[in-house]
Design a protein around this nucleic acid. Sequence first.
DNA 1: GCCAACGTTGGC
DNA 2: GCCAACGTTGGC
Length: 161
Amino acid sequence: MTQYWLMKSEPDECSIDDALAAPQATVPWTGVRNYQARNFMRDAMRIGDGVLFYHSSCPQPGIAGLARVASAPHTDLTQFDPSSPYFDAASRPEAPRWQLVDVQALRKTRLISLAELRAEPELADMLLLKRGNRLSITPVSPAHWRFITDVLMRRATPSAQ
DNA sequence: GCCAACGTTGGC
DNA sequence: GCCAACGTTGGC
């Protein structure tokens, strides 16, 4: 059964455009250093799961594209790179602490801003919107996924109604 | 730059 | 196991 996720990326580091420009439009989701977010990638994600590509820590935070989970979990090599901001000196190569999945960008969408998401009553209990939420990866319910993709289709192809 | 909220660390 | 101190996230 397909699951759905929202994954935050800082566009300064990897925007939806950057992901689309990568080989196969696929990027390893490096830098997650939170156990809950890691566990989603390591334990719960399956290839083909839907991903809302979210831009965070930027002037216009919001959903910027659609993507899919494109690999099984594998080791995040940045944890062993002392020159990386994601270096983790406590992680041993024989027992890597951080794993990631590859994410394949499918398309850029119009930006659905955080304010627009908050304004939708149907999305009121999205994990992303919960008070104090800081998780960079959150599961998205099928109903929320359907609502958001419907909104995108409506605005993208008004004549199709 | 501010700050609310949360996660992690480490002493006890 | 508790919890205070500290660090980080991320919107504003």
